[in-house]
Amino acid sequence: MSGRAPVIAARDLEVTYPGHPPVHAVRGVSFELFRGEVVGLVGESGCGKSTIAKVLTGLVRPAAGEVEYHGRPVRPLGVGRRPLAQTGIQMVFQDPGSSLNPRRPVGAQIQDGLDLAAKRARRSGRRSGAGPVGEPPADPANVRRVIGQPADAAVSPTAARLLPAGSPGRWLERVGLEAADQSRYPRSFSGGQRQRIATARALAAEPDVLIGDEPISALDASTQAKVAYLMSRLALSQGAVLLFISHDLSVVRLIADRLLVMWAGRIVESGPTEAVWSNPGHPYTKVLLGAIPAPDGAGRLPLVPPSAAAFDAPPVIHAP
């Protein structure tokens, strides 16, 4: 993939949170994300995954290093309005309870995303909503198939083509809800539905980078794969890159082309999903894979945490 320019790239990111002693959340992280790929960022709680997401969007200022978006540095978000050029980076947050404003109908919230896309399109002189949104991606190799999960399982069968492509109702249908739901408030939706609405809101802004910060960790097991699959399908159909952050390798594996394994603020292993899954090289990755419960009735406990020596183990990079 080195022949193409990355859409977004992290260069030697260091993040420190103030405290006594200060928390060194991210210690020298670099990676590049390319158009049309789904990358899974996995690791245990507190390893710095969410911090990475916040730095990429500009919500957190890195202590050192920088984020480049289309070759230009991402400016940390201050009090003022976010630069329009950077609004192509969008994010779906972790907590379904607070990812939507409880006092606004969901349609109005999706409209915010549509307004932003229209505004960016006006600025760049092209028409918004012109892309093949909602259609299956041209390259089937881009989407990893979920076993027993038909491609349009989450999409409403009544998906009406009558609604304009850039309408909140149409977006609700794309994420498997009904157009009539747009006048309802977030409290009348379940956690999984809210995360789908949040996904619709972020994608309606036509981003080319979508970051999912543990968007499925608060959902039950049967909904997790559905939402993860929906996010990757819709993001890819827009030609966006999806950075999917999770502690749960078993779900990430289903959608990700490439994995970044993070531990204690560093990326300890990276490479194509299958290579990492079948041939983990770093001691921590082995532990992480060993922690996935198997439904074989053996009732094994996860492996013991890696020893301190694992800190010194060099990062493992699998060739693409």
Binding site: T57, L59, L77, R81, R82, L84, T87, I89, Q90, M91, F93, S99, N101, D112, G113, L116, K119, A198, R201, A202, A205
Partner: peptide, 8 residues
């Protein structure tokens, strides 16, 4: 946050 990310 997500409002700010949408350019509010």
């Amino acid at each position: 946050f997500s409002g700010r990310l949408l350019g509010f």
